[in-house]
Design a protein around this nucleic acid. Structure first.
Lengths: 144, 144
DNA sequence: TTGCGTGCAAACGTTTTGCAGTATT
DNA sequence: AATACTGCAAAACGTTTGCACGCAA
């Protein structure tokens, strides 16, 4: 099921409303291929629909989060980052502390880590929300 | 070398000053055994030295960060979290999305992940800054 | 017709900043 | 004596909220 239909179905189920703003915001998320901020969504949305306000973007992202169509990734600067959850294999992000580049990565090893951590501590990590801080290949040269 | 001496040495090296505020703030960090906020440091510092202001705490944490005596850990709520970097084996944190508990963990496996990731992508993760989001054993029962 | 959603603007909590006086070197 | 640092207060920043009107159901 496309995420547009999932969204509509869930809105109906909860007695909420399908509004143009919500549909536009959701469709905009397809533009992004790494974690994005509310502000970035707002700017993108504004290009085609100047009427939609930032607060509506925030409210819609929150709603999408509760439907699991969006997840939150913390990449470490002050802004919240979100990502569009599609039916992909779980992936996580590497965020360079120096240049702020974001690498998206899907890896078998993280699944191994997940199950070992869970066996050891009962804690179940959520792979899609992981961001690992560090230095990318380029930036490593500039740090002593 | 104790971190107090490292701090002093680095201040001298940079032509900066050793002030009572800076020394008090650094010594306070020993109280914390999991990531802490600027506000928490401020409250602790205030108990013994009511004159020191929050903005000074922020500035000092920033300074300590640049000397690598403090690192930033993102545990996902809006506040920044810092931790005191001592000469311990590298450890990272598990942060429960539901109850916000923080588990500190030192694990061999993460070193393995680190070297594999680096070999594969050139990206070097910084273990001490990692926080992995997820659900702790308790809270897993409450999510469907 | 009901009541959810939106735009608007103001509030919020955290962090940063400009400035003038104070303290360290 | 020079200038880095602090306290102070205000600004900045991202995000949230209250309210009145508008729109989907």
């Amino acid at each position: 099921m496309s995420c547009e239909r999932r969204f509509q179905a869930e809105l109906h189920r909860r007695g909420l409303r399908v509004t143009p703003q919500r549909e536009i915001i959701l469709s905009t998320l397809h533009c992004f291929h790494s974690p994005f901020t509310a502000e970035e969504v707002f700017r993108k949305v504004t290009e085609s629909s100047p009427g939609i306000k930032l607060s509506t973007v925030y409210r819609t992202l929150e709603l999408l989060k509760s439907i699991n169509l969006v997840s939150v990734v913390d990449v470490g600067n002050r802004r919240n980052h979100y990502m569009h959850v599609e039916a992909e294999s779980p992936h996580f992000h590497l965020v360079c502390r120096r240049c702020e580049a974001v690498l998206s990565l899907s890896s078998e090893e993280i699944l191994e880590v997940q199950s070992k951590l869970c066996a050891k501590s009962g804690f179940e990590i959520e792979i899609n929300r992981i961001s690992l801080p560090g230095l990318c290949e380029n930036c490593r040269r500039f740090e002593e």
